[in-house]
Design a binder for these strands. Structure first.
Lengths: 333, 333
DNA sequence: CACTTAAATGTAAGCGCTTACAAAATATTG
DNA sequence: CAATATTTTGTAAGCGCTTACATTTAAGTG
């Protein structure tokens, strides 16, 4: 693999000049530029990004932490972030934290050791304090889907409470009053916010919240099935079931069908996230749109503006509003 | 950010000694090791991976190229590869090629410039010649889901032809003779192989392949819907529909239902890949298992063995056999 | 205890680049 | 055309590590 030294020799110029034509930041005469470019081409020269980074203290790569590498939600997020950044010549290094303190920690350390120019984090397990320290350390950080006190400028969140409210409110508007709720793990802020919204909608309609109407799942499909089974034995009067994400809603639908319910005539189901596959479920899932795409885009633009000084016309917004997507799983009572 | 120099000073030893305790490859007395470790801890020292890589010519990271960052298939693949590699202290740098020659090219160049120790490629657009050159360049490369002549040692593939055969064969065994087929883009080897298998099954059963029974999709959900619509106007006698992947099968199911077909009593559908969500479709999709998980695992182990000399008990296999997963969308005629 | 052998540590030369700063070449001006 | 300003190029010092080799220290031996 050719080095800059060989190029400089072949072109009959100094290292510095080669570096200059590579980076295009200093003036080089047309004639020498040509010589250098020819030499590069004929040697098949490819700059060593590692060496460049070490010397320039700039890696042109931003670290992205997600909880999992699979699943629609994270797929959308990764895809969006990568697209925006790549369009601007920046690269993304993706790691997974698996919703585990140690692993998130380790993943972030990895990204830091890799000297990413900035970090985009969907961190669920790590503490607020840790994140505050991270931001204080001068490393540009943006936090997705989590609001950390005193870090408003770095956080991009959807209004989960409002989303939870919308879901349950929609069910109530269709006449439902016995509404089951399958939540995510309640130690997670987004899960508890959504539940809070659910309760607000109930309260507003004068419906008392019953403890037995709640099943705490883990955001995965299988816990949706378990949740539905739970409902049948502990809250069998339900006519509508609100789920804190689409995956669990899908699981619940499967279980409901196995139990002989017709959806939505005998049981209404509402999801959350509006993940890609939700429209392909049968019946098509009524859900709350979680603007992941918009948030990912925004996070990427924030980095471009703050770290690379690349301006875009996009105004930075930190709070995203959810909205209901009416499809076929919510019926009139 | 503390450097190795500051650590050596704080511990009262030389740079080399600090490096030695970091890497644990040379002997260091217990006493000095302790001194160094204490110094590291109190300084919050974190090695600069960039500098390490430059000096050692080893990045401990392997590049992974996928076609897209979203979608179940790639999610599974990324997840598996990352898991195996991370367990062994190696890191994954993921890039997307978007099934486009230039972008795959660029993505691979990026990984090379990042000095990955090895590459795991799910490259669909780039030429065989390009891949052969890449392998010749001494960069360890493994190729997933694509068989390149003279590169057998580097390729891990599922027998797509056999998979296509199995799908159609299963339909025939249930009495179907008018079988529609929604393929992937036929310039892709896997798509054309699957179709070839379909044709072989037909031939074996003495059924003539009709051109109008074929719709060429793009492996995305929406083209499954389009394919189903096509069938209704151009091949309406179909009683079974074989789809070259699960996403298109899902799209086809949606369209079929909208057109009033009951599945499987009026129309049988078979997918391909056995992607996670296929079991959550309603009815649950009968499909061909594509052992992505096993292939990803194998690819990762190949790298561990060949590049990092980490032996595992796993024997390296290059050809994976597909099998049918019987669920609820294939019915007797 | 002097002498050999092994273990622990230090010295210094890179790895392939970037970038102040200095030097040389070219252009401008009265 | 000499003197000065300007542009273009070269020189060399790092960036933070690893590692071959040299040196020092400790352990073993008769």
């Amino acid at each position: 693999m050719a080095t800059i030294y060989e190029v400089s020799e072949a072109a009959g110029v100094s290292l510095a000049t080669v570096s200059r034509v590579m980076n295009g930041n200093a003036k080089v005469s047309e004639r020498t530029r040509k010589k250098v470019e020819d030499a590069m081409a004929s040697l098949g020269y490819q700059p060593n990004a590692i060496a460049q980074s070490l010397a320039s203290n700039r890696t042109n790569s931003v670290g992205l932490l997600v909880s999992e590498l699979h699943g629609s939600y994270f797929g959308d997020l990764m895809s969006t972030v990568e697209q925006v950044l790549k369009q601007n010549g920046k690269h993304v290094i993706i790691t997974a934290g698996h919703v585990n303190v140690d692993r998130e920690h380790e993943a972030i350390e990895f990204l830091k050791s890799r000297r990413c120019d900035a970090l985009i984090l969907h961190a669920e397990a790590v503490s607020d304090d840790y994140l505050r320290k991270l931001v204080d350390s001068k490393l540009p950080v943006v936090i997705i889907n989590r609001k950390v006190d005193n870090l408003d400028d770095n956080c991009f969140v959807v209004d989960n409470e409002q989303g939870g409210y919308l879901a349950t409110h929609a069910a109530i508007k269709q006449g439902h009053r016995n509404i089951g709720y399958i939540s995510g793990p309640l130690f997670k802020k987004d899960a508890s916010d959504r539940l809070a919204g659910h309760k607000r909608a109930l309260a507003e309609a004068g419906i008392e919240f019953e403890a037995s109407s709640l099943f705490e799942g883990d955001f995965h499909e299988s816990s949706g099935q378990e949740g539905m089974q739970y409902m049948q034995t502990h809250f069998s009067k339900l006519t509508a079931l609100v789920c804190a994400n689409d995956e669990m809603a899908s699981g619940a639908m499967t279980a409901a069908r196995e139990a002989g319910f017709d959806i939505p005539s005998q049981l209404s189901i509402i999801g959350f996230d509006n993940v890609l596959f939700s429209r392909y479920l049968y019946p098509k899932l009524t859900t709350i749109n979680n603007p992941i795409h918009a948030m990912g885009e925004m996070a990427a633009h924030w980095v471009l503006q703050h770290v690379y000084n690349i301006k875009s016309s996009m105004a930075i917004e930190h709070l995203f509003v959810p909205e209901i997507i009416n499809r076929d799983t919510l019926g009139k009572l």
